Simulated assay, not measured.
Amino acid sequence: MMDQPTVFSDEFDLDSRWLVDPKLLFVGPKIGEGAHAKVYEGKYKNQNVAIKVFHKGETPEEIAKRGSRFAREVSMLTRVQHKNLVKFIGACKEPVMVVVTELLLGGSLRKYLLSLRPRPLDIRVAVGFALDIAQAMECLHSHGIIHRDLKPENLLLTADQKTVKLVDFGLAREETLTEMMTAETGTYRWMAPELYSTVTLRHGEKKHYNHKVDAYSFAIVLWELLHNRTPFEEC
């Protein structure tokens, strides 16, 4: 795992309380991969953990962008703790950018739904999951944080598959009345209309929105929990 040092902005200083020693990280099999990082099952100080390793980036612009994403995710994880948010264990910036969290062995909500399809969830299970998700979002919003990417892939189950926890804060942002945030953020089937436009947006164009974008995504996930179908599957 330990590759060449990643160039990183000095503006982000990782609190020593959350600094993990990369020499104590044991990296096991890969359990997930996205555009910005790979996630591995592993151990840290004999504790089973999930290890998210951020891609370095090839150009100075990519390196800076991934550094900002890493800094944002760590900042959000250190600010909020809740039983329905993945537990943050620590992070390190060198020799690569790594975020370490608890390991959730129940798989993603998406995988769970697909395993049952075409059968719907038991209504009590669906409501229980919905309440878990709502409480996670309420915690974030009470701290002025918008997740911006609420979807079944970012909702993981505990080993007994009875509790849902929200993960992946790479797109999360602080909500302010004046901040203009990047449009076209998230995954289209779960995105609120104000996150995209019928008019093609210029790269990096900004527009204002608030925590209600998460409420829209929650409504789509709730529909999915009740029907066990892909949203807008006819599109």
Rank of each mutant, 00 (worst) to 15 (best):
M1G: 15
M2Y: 15
M2T: 15
Q4F: 12
V7W: 15
V7L: 15
F8D: 15
D10G: 12
D10R: 12
D13C: 11
L14C: 09
S16K: 15
R17W: 02
L19K: 15
L19I: 11
V20E: 04
V20F: 03
D21E: 11
L24P: 04
F26C: 08
F26R: 12
V27W: 04
P29C: 13
K30T: 07
I31M: 06
G34L: 13
G34M: 13
H36Q: 14
K38W: 07
V39C: 07
E41H: 13
E41Y: 12
G42L: 09
K43Q: 14
K45T: 02
N46G: 04
N46A: 10
N48M: 12
I51S: 05
I51F: 09
K56H: 11
P60F: 01
E61N: 10
E62V: 03
A64E: 14
R69V: 08
F70D: 05
R72C: 08
L77A: 06
L77K: 09
T78K: 12
R79T: 09
R79W: 03
K83Q: 14
K83D: 15
K83N: 13
L85H: 04
V86W: 00
G90D: 06
G90I: 05
K93R: 14
K93D: 12
K93L: 14
E94K: 12
V96P: 10
V99K: 07
V99R: 08
V100C: 06
T101Y: 04
T101H: 04
E102M: 01
L103A: 13
G106D: 08
S108V: 01
K111I: 00
Y112C: 01
L113S: 04
L116I: 01
R117D: 00
P118W: 01
L121W: 02
D122S: 00
R124P: 01
A126G: 03
L131G: 00
D132A: 06
D132E: 03
I133L: 14
A134L: 05
M137D: 11
E138L: 07
E138F: 05
H143M: 02
I145E: 11
I145R: 13
P152G: 12
L157A: 06
A159N: 09
Q161W: 04
Q161L: 04
L166R: 09
R173S: 08
E174C: 03
E174K: 08
E175T: 08
E179N: 03
M180A: 10
M181S: 06
E184H: 11
G186R: 07
T187C: 09
R189C: 06
W190A: 10
W190R: 07
L195E: 03
L195A: 09
L195C: 12
T198K: 14
V199R: 15
T200E: 13
T200Q: 14
T200F: 09
E205R: 13
E205P: 12
K207E: 01
H208W: 13
S217A: 14
S217D: 02
S217E: 01
S217N: 05
F218P: 09
A219F: 11
V221K: 04
W223G: 00
W223I: 01
W223E: 00
E224A: 01
L225A: 00
H227I: 04
R229I: 03
E233F: 07
